[in-house]
Design a protein around this nucleic acid. Structure first.
Lengths: 270, 270
DNA sequence: TAGTGGTCTAGACCACCTC
DNA sequence: AGGTGGTCTAGACCACTAC
C-alpha cells in the first residue's frame, strides 16, 4: 500500500524538484504559453493525477501553489480556472483626487466609461482612532474620530474599501462630516467653504496578504495580495484627514504624475 | 483506520469552519495577542496535532495558511517561527530620487544610517525591449535597449531589484550608459551634462505574488507579495528611461509627498 | 541520534454543481 | 446520478538541524 519503499531517484543524483512542484511548473508553462488561456478550465484533479502519475493529493499540492500565486482559481463542483485580470488604473496625483467624494465620483465615472457598472455602500461611524490613524492625525491615541467608510464594487465584484478618518476638532467646524448622508458638493469643497483647505498630502503605499476580514470584504481568494494606500491630508496648519484605501491587488494599479508630463502624450501606457 | 465514518457534527447544524481553519485561526489569535511574539518558535506539528486532536496533515494545512499569509515562516529541521518585519520607507517623490544612481546612494545611506549593511550587485546588458518597456519608451517592440540592473541587499537579505532601460537613441548621445562600470557622477547628471534633462516622471505601482524567478532573486517565501514600481522618466521631448523596481512587500513601504507638507512636521509617521 | 518539517500515497467521506 | 473540488486520516520515508 505504501509505495515509498519503492521510490527511487531516476535523476542520477541531480537535484530535482519535488513532484508537486513539477506539476505546478508544467501547468504554469502551459498557462504562460497559451495552452490554457485566461478563463479556461484546467483538467480535473483526477486527469492530472493520471497524467503526472501522482496521487490526487500531490496534484492538489501543485495546484495549490498556482492558486496561492493567484494564477488560477478553484471552486467546488466546478473545477480550476485560469484567472483573468482586468486592471483598473487609479491616478493618485491629480488634484481632483484630493477630493474624497469627488474621487468616488471619478471612480464611478471611470467605471461607467469602461462599460462596467459601479456600485458602492457607504456608512459613517464615530469611533476611537486606531493607533496608525491617531499618529498621522497628530491626535491622542483612542481620541474620537469620524469614520466615513465606503465599500466599492464593479459589476458586483468587490473592488476596494476606503476609510476616511477625520479628527474630532474638525467635526466642531464641519459637523456634517459626522452625519450619515452624502455630502453633495464633496467633502473637500464643504471643508474649503468652512475655511479648511487641503494644501498637500502624504501618501504611503504598501502591500501584504489580506487579513481574514479583508478577504471577506473583497472576496479575494488565496494568492491575491492587497494594495494598501494611506493618504494623510494637510491644511496649512495641521492634518485634517487620513484615508486608508484597501485595493484588490489583482484588479488595481496606481499611478503618479510628477513634474512635466508634456512628453508623455495621449497614447500613454494604459 | 478511516475514521470519517464516525465523524459527526457537534454543532447542531451551525455552519462550522473546517478543522484546519480552526487551527489557523487559533494560532493567529495567539500571535496577535502576543502569546507567540515575533521571532518566537511555534509548537511543533506533532504537539499541535495532539492539542487540536487533528492529524499531522490537518495541522500542516492550517500552518500552511499562516505561512501563505506571511505570518509565520518554516524551515526544515528548525520549526515554525513567527515572522518579524522591519519595514523600510522609500520616498518616491523627492527630486533626488529622479537620479537613479543617486537613488542607489540614498538607499545605501539610509541603510547605513539604520545601522545595517547595504550591498548591491550591478550589471549592464544590451537586449531587446520587453513589450511593457517598449510601450513606455515609445520605442519599437524588440528594439535595442540598454539595461542597467541592480540587485540590492541589506545585511545579506535580498531587498529589491531595479532594472533601468534606456532607449537605443540615447546611447548614441550618452555612450557611457552602455558601459559596464558605474557612472560616478550619477546617470542623471551625466545625461543632464549632455543636454538630456529629466523634467518629469510617471510612476505606476502594482502588487502581485512573485514569479518563481523573483522568488529566487528576492528569496521570499510563500505568502509574501512583491511591490512593482515602474517609473518612466521624460525629457521635455520624449521618454528617456524606464525603471522597474521589484520590492519585497514585507520589507518596503513607498511614500509620496504631494503639495504643501509644512504641516506634516518632523515627527511624521515613521 | 533524535526531533523537526517536507513529500507522497491510498483511501474515505462531504459539499457543491450540472445534467 | 455522476463528476468536481474540499477535508481529513494514517502512515511511510526523506532531508535538515541540533546535540
Amino acid at each position: 500500500m505504501y509505495q515509498q519503499v519503492a521510490r527511487v531517484r531516476h535523476d542520477g543524483g541531480m537535484s530535482r524538484q519535488p513532484k508537486y512542484r513539477q506539476v505546478a511548473d508544467a501547468l504554469r508553462r502551459e498557462i504562460d504559453n497559451g495552452t490554457h488561456p485566461p478563463g479556461a478550465r484546467l483538467p480535473s484533479e483526477s486527469e492530472l493525477s493520471e497524467r503526472f502519475e501522482a496521487s490526487r493529493n500531490t496534484v492538489r499540492s501543485g495546484l495549490g501553489l498556482l492558486v496561492s500565486q493567484g494564477l488560477v482559481t478553484s471552486s467546488q463542483g466546478l473545477g480550476y480556472e485560469v484567472a483573468k485580470h482586468e486592471v483598473f488604473e487609479l491616478n493618485a496625483s491629480r488634484f481632483e483626487n484630493l477630493n474624497f467624494e469627488q474621487n468616488g465620483d471619478a471612480y464611478s465615472t471611470d467605471v461607467t466609461n469602461a462599460g462596467r457598472r459601479p456600485h458602492q455602500t457607504f456608512r459613517v461611524e464615530i469611533l476611537p482612532a486606531p493607533a496608525a490613524v491617531a499618529e498621522r492625525l497628530k491626535a491622542e491615541p483612542e481620541s474620537r474620530t469620524v469614520l466615513r467608510f465606503c465599500h466599492r464594487f464593479v459589476d458586483d465584484t468587490p473592488w476596494s474599501t476606503q476609510a476616511t478618518y477625520y479628527p474630532s476638532w474638525l467635526i466642531d467646524e464641519a459637523p456634517r462630516l459626522a452625519e450619515p448622508g452624502d455630502i453633495e458638493e464633496g467633502t473637500t469643497r464643504y471643508l474649503a467653504d468652512r475655511g479648511i483647505e487641503q494644501v498637500g498630502y502624504f501618501d504611503e503605499i504598501s502591500t501584504r496578504m489580506p487579513t481574514p476580514d479583508e478577504a471577506r470584504l473583497l472576496e479575494v481568494g488565496a494568492g491575491v495580495p492587497v494594495l494598501l494606500w494611506m493618504r494623510t491630508g494637510y491644511s496649512a496648519e495641521r492634518p485634517i484627514r487620513c484615508t486608508i484605501t484597501t485595493l484588490r491587488g489583482d484588479l488595481n494599479r496606481m499611478n503618479y504624475e510628477i513634474g512635466d508630463q508634456s512628453a508623455r502624450g495621449e497614447g500613454a501606457p494604459r
